[in-house]
């Protein structure tokens, strides 16, 4: 297991390096630059600005400078949010995005796996159809529909939760975003769990477990569930990355000051450093959640560790 873990971990740094390098050059391929606006700046001022940010240097020099800064933990200054460094912007927004993203994944596993298991155990019953019906809805309805709907019901009609906004240290502002974000993940996990548990329950080793005279609960928890969770875990890696980084819609619906908006605004503004900063952070999050999924996978299935 240790060797397997080290092998997986050692793959992360080179991958991140490739992501950063490729993104750095690809962004520059897009036409325009940070100082092209509707009202054109006088060429001298533009040249001065570019010189101040080092944009007048050859691309490779800029790349080397950026990478050096990155190693020191410096993402550089933002071109558009003039008084802030990218590090500051990310430090402000990331905790919120991370919190709602991770909370959503946590909630989704906690609810999705038992729901899926229940549906599998009571196959073709009312509860199975109910859960699977809910799952289809959860997957089909986009979050920009569910989000405002929740805000309407719980914020306006019932008045129990704030409609939108955020105040530090007030978790009630995060409940609706987390639930909205978690809903499709719950639905997907429930479907995955159901399908894979049904398959495992038909497998020969579950028959062996039953032939040993084990109780149904023991058969389920000790013999069937762990192998059945493999597809869920492999889904969870990309899903966590997606939920943490892709909460842009949720953040705009609920007016949360997360990082989602920076990526979009940064890209539109050609705010190179901000976009790069977001890519580095999101890339790292994606790699990290996939790494955790890989390690979990190895723990769940001993056969994986030796490949």
């Amino acid at each position: 297991m240790l060797r397997y873990a080290l092998q997986r971990i050692s793959g992360v740094i080179p991958t991140l390096f490739v992501i950063i390098t490729a993104s750095f050059f690809v962004i520059r391929l897009a036409p325009g630059g940070p100082f092209d606006e509707e009202q054109t700046l006088p060429p001298e001022i533009k040249a001065n600005l570019e010189a101040a940010y080092g944009l007048d240097q050859p691309l490779l020099v800029q790349y080397g400078r950026y990478m050096r800064g990155l190693l020191a933990g410096d993402f550089g200054p933002s071109f558009k949010f003039k008084d802030f460094s990218v590090t500051e912007l990310i430090a402000q927004g990331l905790p919120i995005s991370l919190t709602i993203g991770l909370a959503a994944v946590f909630v989704a596993v906690l609810i999705g796996v038992p729901l899926g298991a229940l549906a599998a155990l009571r196959r073709n019953s009312a509860s199975d159809y109910g859960i699977m019906g809910f799952a289809v809805l959860g997957i089909a309805l986009p979050s920009f529909v569910i989000g405002p709907l929740f805000a309407l019901i719980f914020g306006l009609y019932l008045g129990v939760l704030p409609v939108a906004g955020y105040e530090t240290g007030q978790p009630k502002y995060l409940i609706l975003p987390v639930v909205t974000l978690a809903l499709p993940v719950i639905a997907y996990i429930a479907r995955l769990t159901r399908g894979s548990l049904l398959e495992v329950l038909r497998s020969n080793f579950v028959r062996t477990a039953r032939a040993k005279g084990l109780s149904p609960l023991r058969v389920l928890f000790r013999h069937a569930l762990r192998p059945a969770l493999l597809p869920v875990v492999s889904y969870l890696g990309p899903a966590t990355a997606f939920v943490v980084t892709g909460s842009l819609v949720i953040e705009s619906v609920f007016g949360l000051p997360g990082t989602g908006r920076y990526l979009v605004q940064g890209a539109i503004n050609r705010d190179y450093t901000l976009v790069m900063g977001m890519i580095v952070v999101y890339g790292a999050i994606t790699l990290l959640s996939n790494l955790i999924a890989d390690l979990l996978y190895g723990w769940l299935d001993p056969r994986v560790r030796y490949d």
Binding site: S203, N204, F205, R207, T208, A209, R222, H223, R226, P227, L300, D301, P302, R303
Partner: peptide
């Protein structure tokens, strides 16, 4: 080949 639990 398939009658033993792979993870135990």
């Amino acid at each position: 080949m398939t009658s033993l639990a792979p993870h135990i």
